[in-house]
Amino acid sequence: MARRFATRPIDSLGLESAMADRLLPFLVAAMSFLAALAFAGSLAASNFATHWQDSARSTLTIEVPDPTQPAGTPPAANPPATAPALSRQAAVLAALQRQSGVDHVKQLGPADLQSLLAPWLGHDAADLPISLPAVMTATAPRPIDLTALQTTLTGLAPGAMVDSGATWAARLGDLTGSLQASAAAILIVVALVAGAVVAVAVRAGLAQRRDSIEIIHGLGALDADIANRFASRALRLAFLGGAAGALLALPLLLWLAHLSAPFAAAVPLAAPPASGKLQELGQIRDSLPAILWGAPALLAGMAALIGWIAAQITVRGWLRRLI
């Protein structure tokens, strides 16, 4: 008997047990699951966009019509009078290779050009009675003066076009912004719904213990004494639900990461040959950003905080009706 009364019971007012301990964690787990997906979606959109934007922004595509015609004379050039005339594609290629800040200049071969045009002209584009342009690609890691480059190339090959990919980069930026805003909106909605779920559970608990709370209030309990009992219970249940939901989301996230690997540079396209369990574990670890591995703890903490705040607001509001 002495041991039984040696320490204060955790639920000494008998209020915490008023809150159902089954439904709330389950509902919070569902919210946490959705939040984990939205969070991962937001991160993925951000990562993909950064990668794609960098790639699109630095890529130059140059199109040279009538590539085999003799090149013109660039305004600043002073060629020897007896030099043989270069074709337009060769002149543009040479100009690009000389251009400061431009690397990896490459002309697409007939097969590349064929596959590029196939969606529009079919697989027999080379046999069509039309003059196909020469297409070259290059990279410009740092911003360059595209207007000057365009002028130079037009002088060599009238009608030559330089596409920097900046337009695509801007569009990708807009798309990423929209995706991230959507993910943020989903997270906010999920947080609000989780708060509402906790509030409903707390109100059910208050209704169940209404008489007891009035008695305890009459004995001199402060609002905080009562609210803290419900809030600590809500915090624990929401923490459990939040952690469970996020843990359940991890396998799905790993699968999605595997599916999206071809679109993200961070994830290897083909898994290297496994040489041990440690390496396999390393591959699994690397397939998600570090912050997503911390998602269970992060979401459990957020769920707990939401649970605690929602319970405090609900109980204190309810207690206002008592004198």
Binding site: F5, R209, L219
Partner: peptide
């Protein structure tokens, strides 16, 4: 009486002391 039905006699009597 207004006793708390889910608490034992001991815990009912202990309430004012625990609140204090």
């Amino acid at each position: 009486f207004r006793l708390l039905p889910h608490l034992s006699a001991y815990d009912n009597v202990a309430l004012p002391l625990r609140l204090a």
